[in-house]
């Protein structure tokens, strides 16, 4: 059975990883604006994710301006897929329990 991932239980980290899962790479600024975080808050979360090998950080220059790009590693993709399966199992179990024990019916 799929297991929940401790790191991805945090909604902000889950939002970042979900965003990156649909991309080959994304600019730091794009991720920051999409998840509505400050530079420092995103930087902190990215450090945690990259230390655990979920996210890869690449730095470079476009003209004279420094840029940072983020991408999800294969480990990150696998962990997200497993986390999603675990979440789906929880939601599915609640649905099937609800179907077996409709509201108002007493459970022995």
């Amino acid at each position: 059975m799929a297991e929940l991932d401790q790191l991805l239980l945090d909604p902000t980290r889950l939002a970042i990883v979900s965003l990156l899962s649909a991309a080959d790479w994304a600019e730091f600024g794009f991720v920051r604006d999409s998840v509505k975080l400050s530079d420092s808050a995103l930087s902190k979360q990215v450090t945690t994710l990259s230390k655990n090998d979920y996210v890869e950080v690449r730095k470079g220059y476009v003209g004279k301006r420094p840029r940072t790009w983020l991408n999800l590693t294969d480990t990150g993709r696998d962990k997200l897929a497993e986390h999603i399966s675990a979440l789906q199992a929880i939601a599915e179990k609640a649905r099937s329990d609800g179907a077996h024990h409709p509201r108002g019916e007493s459970v022995p």
Binding site: L14, A15, I16, L19
Partner: peptide, 22 residues
């Protein structure tokens, strides 16, 4: 701490929205 079914459903929605944004 295992998320409640409501939290799990909200997290799944957040995952979908994140992908949709990209």
């Amino acid at each position: 701490n295992e998320p409640t079914p409501a939290e799990a459903a909200a997290a799944l929605r957040a995952v979908h929205e994140g992908k949709e944004q990209v």
